[in-house]
Design a protein around this nucleic acid. Structure first.
Lengths: 214, 214
DNA sequence: GTCTATATACAGATAGAC
DNA sequence: GTCTATCTGTATATAGAC
């Protein structure tokens, strides 16, 4: 790996974990085993280094909606939720960083935040579309309000992420909560099966009266 | 207002919006119309100024659970949700700051974050207790899992907050989402009335029937 | 391309006049 | 109490040798 690449990778990592101001060129230089001067030879200023380095963890922030082909609406929702969660878990340090920039309103990363904001909207729109389709196909309950419920699902997911940050929980506990969330979402969205287990709960029966076929 | 007070207020505001490192004593001094030396005469170091200034917006972070007296379990949940949301809306800039510290893991505000973490746990515990009681009293559906559902509700609330930050939405849109969330929570928790009006919206009536005495 | 040496600016903190 | 002047460290950035 060339020195330039090494610098970029190191900078992306340090900026992500410590933020712009808290990361000095000296730190980057030490961690990348180069001199400060070399960094400024490639990138003319700290700010430029920052911008270019951001592309490193901005590129993978793309949505691939091909993978939803052939799944039922409820499976699609389930998959979108899991994927979102997995994505955050996998890119934890950079997501944390972006959140930090959002919170601070740092002017150095306006473009970054805007990009993420856009991805966020796309994701939510995708969810809403699926909810809408599932609703018209009567796979989902008619009370579903696509836009609002999509926003709520996204909010809950973001909240689970924040919860994990605040509580400093390990992934295990958070996973359990996600499973519980998946369950809750299914119960809220999906039309109950024609032969519900009536033994205990009365709600499903109630709703089953207004349930047409697939 | 004395110079000391002026410094404290200015510092609290600047630290809250820009963070510890990004706020210099010179800035504080300029904004408070005093000299740097005076700041260090009152508070011996920048860090100490930071700590003392934090108390300014840490004090109001208390939970008053007396106000829940005389409400039904479902009303209690509703109130807790609204209060949490209102609190965040009201203390937006300091909550943003705390979130920023959590995200960054800043060692200068360990105590602050720990305090908030504790309040968060108490709030969640309170919610869980109410859910538990409502469940045994059959005001809530038996599928309710107090701990998990409380955590989920908190997560959704935090998520709504983050959503608002990311989307830079005005309070109006966020309010609508909160109302939709309240509705969703009620539908999930509350036992349906024995004679639900299935025609369109059954919920408000629903709640009025099952409201027992104190 | 990569380095050392250095310029320049600004941070937090101290000394001491008033 | 409040100030000006100054010290010291560290940050970004430049100059120039190799």
């Amino acid at each position: 790996m060339g020195a330039r690449e090494k610098i970029l990778e190191t900078a992306a990592h340090l900026f992500s974990t410590s933020g712009y101001r808290a990361t000095s060129l000296a730190q980057v230089a030490r961690a990348a085993h180069v001199s400060k001067a070399l960094i400024l030879w490639y990138f003319n200023s700290k700010e430029q280094l920052f911008r270019v380095a951001l592309q490193h963890f901005l590129t993978p922030y793309e949505i691939d909606d091909q993978v939803l082909m052939g799944l039922s609406e409820s499976e699609q929702v389930e998959k979108l939720i899991n994927d979102y969660y997995d994505f955050i878990a996998e890119h934890l340090y950079s997501v944390k960083f972006v959140l930090g920039q959002v919170v601070r309103g740092d002017e150095n990363s306006q473009e970054l935040v805007e990009h993420v904001r856009e991805l966020y909207r796309v994701y939510r729109g995708l969810l809403a579309t699926i909810l809408e389709r599932g609703k018209t196909r009567c796979v989902f309950v008619p009370q579903v309000r696509p836009t609002e419920d999509a926003a709520l699902i996204m909010a809950a997911l973001n909240g689970l992420f924040v919860q994990r940050l605040v509580e400093q929980e390990n992934n295990g506990v958070a996973r359990e909560l996600l499973d519980h969330f998946q369950l809750t979402v299914r119960e809220r969205l999906c039309t109950p099966s024609p032969h519900p287990d009536v033994s205990f709960l009365s709600l499903p029966e109630l709703l089953s009266t207004q349930r047409p076929r697939r």
